[in-house]
C-alpha cells in the first residue's frame, strides 16, 4: 500500500527535482511498484500535470514522455511500425490491459528491474533516456547506473533503420518472464539484449560478425549462422537461479529464444 504524508502535483520539473532530493521523497508513476513497498514516504511527487503523457514522432526520433503508459506504447502505430511490432510483443504479456493502462514507461525504465520486458525491448534500439539533471544518455549506459534522485523525463528512440524482433519466455501467462530477448539488425551492427537472467538486461553486439551478410545468404548458410550466433550470444551472459528457473535452464532458453527471434527477422527479409 502506498503510504505518504504529502502528495504533490509538481508544477514544473524544477520543482519536482528540488522536492525529490529529499531522501524521504519519491516520484510516483503508475504506483505499480511503489505500492508493493511498505515504506512511509514523506512526500510523493506526481508528474502527471507536466504534459509527459505524450509520444511525439518526428523524422528523426520518437520521444516518449515518462507518464506514457505501457498500453499507450502497445497501441502506438508509429512505434510499432518502426519496431516491427516488437514493442507490442514485449508488453502484451504484462499482467493485463488494466494494469498496462495504469503503469508508466518512466517507472518501468527508471526502475531498471531485472525482469523488465520494457527495458529489454528499448535497449536494443538506438535509444536514450533524458534525465532532468543527468541529460541525455544511452539507455544501455543508464541501465548500469545506481538509483539516484534524478528524474526521468523522456525515453528517446532514434529512428535509424533497423529490423528487430522480441520474445520472452514465461512459465505461465502474465507471470514475470523467466527470460527476455530482443534482437536488432541496425546500420551499426547486429545487437542482442538478454534480460531477466534474472539480473538487468544488457546490450551486446555481434562482435564476431557471425551474422554478417545474413540477408544475402543461402538457406543452409542462414541456418548455420543463426545456430552459431545463438550459441555464441547465449554464452556471452551470466545466468542465475531463482524461484522461477535455474541458471542452466535460463542459459538453454536464451539459446532457443536467440535462434527463434533472429530466424523470425531473417525469414521476413
Amino acid at each position: 500500500m502506498l503510504r505518504c504524508n504529502d502528495y504533490i502535483f509538481a508544477e514544473s520539473l524544477d520543482e519536482a527535482y528540488a522536492l525529490n532530493r529529499k531522501k524521504s521523497a519519491a516520484i510516483v508513476g503508475g504506483c505499480g511498484w511503489l505500492k508493493l513497498g511498505s515504506r512511509q514516504w514523506g512526500s510523493v511527487i506526481d508528474l502527471s500535470r507536466l504534459g509527459l503523457d505524450k509520444i511525439t514522432e518526428t523524422d528523426e526520433a520518437f520521444t516518449i514522455g515518462a507518464m506514457v503508459t505501457l498500453r499507450d506504447i502497445e497501441k502506438h502505430e508509429g512505434l510499432n511500425a518502426y519496431t516491427n511490432g516488437a514493442i507490442k510483443e514485449s508488453v502484451r504479456h504484462i499482467v493485463g490491459t488494466q494494469f498496462r493502462n495504469t503503469v508508466t514507461v518512466g517507472g518501468s525504465i527508471f526502475g531498471r528491474f531485472g525482469f523488465s520486458d520494457v527495458l529489454t525491448v528499448f535497449m536494443v534500439t538506438d535509444s536514450f533516456v533524458e534525465l532532468y539533471k543527468g541529460g541525455v544518455i544511452p539507455l544501455h549506459e543508464f541501465a548500469k547506473l545506481h538509483y539516484d534522485d534524478d528524474i526521468l523525463v523522456n525515453v528517446i528512440v532514434k529512428k535509424n533503420p533497423l529490423k528487430m524482433a522480441y520474445s520472452s519466455f514465461r512459465n505461465q501467462q502474465t507471470d514475470f518472464p523467466v527470460l527476455t530477448f530482443a534482437h536488432a539488425f541496425r546500420e551499426d551492427g547486429a545487437f542482442s539484449v538478454i534480460g531477466a537472467r534474472p539480473s538487468r538486461a544488457e546490450l551486446k553486439r555481434d562482435e564476431e560478425n557471425i551474422l554478417k551478410d545474413i540477408f544475402s545468404k543461402s538457406q543452409d548458410e542462414v541456418i548455420e549462422a543463426i545456430n552459431a550466433y545463438a550459441l555464441w550470444i547465449s554464452s556471452q551472459y551470466t545466468y542465475e537461479s531463482n524461484l522461477r528457473a535455474s541458471a542452466d535452464y535460463r542459459r538453454h532458453i536464451a539459446e532457443v529464444l536467440a535462434r527463434r527471434t533472429v530466424t523470425a527477422i531473417v525469414d521476413k527479409g
Partner: peptide, 28 residues
C-alpha cells in the same frame, strides 16, 4: 495485494485501470 486479479477494475476517463494501484489523488 499485487495488482494481479483485475477485480478492482474501474474506468478513469473511460479507460479501465486498477483502483487498487493508482492513488486516489491521481483522479483529482
Amino acid at each position: 495485494e499485487t495488482s494481479n486479479c483485475g477485480l478492482c477494475t474501474v474506468w478513469l476517463e473511460d479507460k479501465p485501470i486498477l483502483s487498487c494501484t493508482l492513488p486516489l489523488m491521481r483522479a483529482d
